[in-house]
Design a protein around this nucleic acid. Sequence first.
RNA 1: UCCCCGAUAGCUCAAUCGGCAGAGCGGGUGGCUGUUAACCACUAGGUUACAGGUUCAAGUCCUGUUCGGGGAGCCA
Length: 453
Amino acid sequence: MKRTKIALLLQATAPANEILAKGWVRTKRDAKGFSFIELNDGSCLSNLQVLANENLPNYDEVRKLTTGSSVSVSGRLVASQGSGQKWEVQATEIQIIGLAPESFPLQKKRHSDEFLRTIAHLRPRTNKYSAAFRIRSELSFAIHQFFHERGFRYIHTPILTASDCEGAGEMFRVTTLPPSGGKIEEDFFGVEANLTVSGQLEGEMLALSLGDVYTFGPTFRAENSNTRRHAAEFWMIEPEMAFCDLQENMSTAEDLIQYLARHTMEHCAEDLNLFAKFVDKELMARLEVLAKAEFMRLPYKEAVSILEKSRHPFEYAVGYGLDLQSEHERYLTEAHFKKPVIVFDYPKTIKPFYMRLNDDDQTVAGMDVLVAGIGEIIGGSQREERYDILLKRMEQMGLSKEKYWWYLESRQYGSVPHSGFGLGFERLIMLVTGINNIRDVIPFPRTPKNIEF
RNA sequence: UCCCCGAUAGCUCAAUCGGCAGAGCGGGUGGCUGUUAACCACUAGGUUACAGGUUCAAGUCCUGUUCGGGGAGCCA
């Protein structure tokens, strides 16, 4: 007999005489002559209540079942007499697949996130983490759906690379040389190679041929960042669009985030409800704002002006030409506008070489999308498509034009205005679940000094 | 990397002025005809992160180390 997933069983519209369910025991409650087993198979948040009666041939064994054990249950799906659930299974046979000893660390009580991180191999068996990872899966799908509906092509840019996307942070070296060292000429590629910090430069090449493209893949940053918003390995969505200016770029970013917020509310209601109840009381209100409210767009100059006029006692100075600090971003999105804010047209001195120079010769067409609680969730720009200006900017910033020859060449053969951005996938999941630490939205997080699992 | 805070039973925490190491949950045993973080009784469980120091006496005070958390920077 084929097993039915618990998500499906719980949606039943009529009783069933014979069903087969398999899963892990979340908890067991014993009474005289029978036991209740809460069975979970990860297909949904809810457990299936299994009634095990003493007339089961192996009831003695069933009675000894522990939290975490895996079982196979055959029986009848019937309306539950109890009040907590619509359906339950009256077991006719229970096979114990794997008995968990009493050392199984997950208990039927709340554990701290810090403790669960030390057992990352088992934490997906908890309600909160299984819900987070189901939402992660659903959002991955929704991202592909969003772009597919709009005629974007999904492309794969290299993980191993010799170029560094200027300004994107420290890189992990990739080498086959022994730890004791050796000559770079003898290394696998014969030149210094690294893990990618962004697929943008390669993505631009595909946009300048396929039109609208996006990548969705892992990204690596060797920054020694110890914060709840940074990981050394994370997933990033990077659309790149030909014949697209900064305003259209911002619209795509806004559409994408709103689409994903709505998709989560529509398709992950049960899991979302757990976060709204236990993790972040304001989650649903925030998602409503996110899904509906038009994002506030304002030039960097105006953002600075608002901050200067606010008379808010900031710890760091506010002024034209200075980068916005976390506290400034938080003020704009959490206190002043109370919705997502897109800041654009930054001074060229604080942004990388590839951002398009504006007519004022002082600012570049870059933009950051800022959201409450997380800060920067998207960073993007219209790219500099004019060969002479791009070359000049690279020279000013001390970049080798030999190394970027292919990037420059794309501006010599039919160059067109184009734009793109990077969306941090883990930060997105933090945004829609209310989980406040990036280590808890990716199954096996990599952060400084943490790569055990 | 910098600043602040923390580490006590398997987990979550308590321990007053430096004076006998505690509770709940979880585990084990027994009980209970429908439970819902079930309930009731009994029970086992400790190198107080590690290494030094001060003291008659250190979980508690001091120094160092390790690990963890929050904030900052870098960014997504």
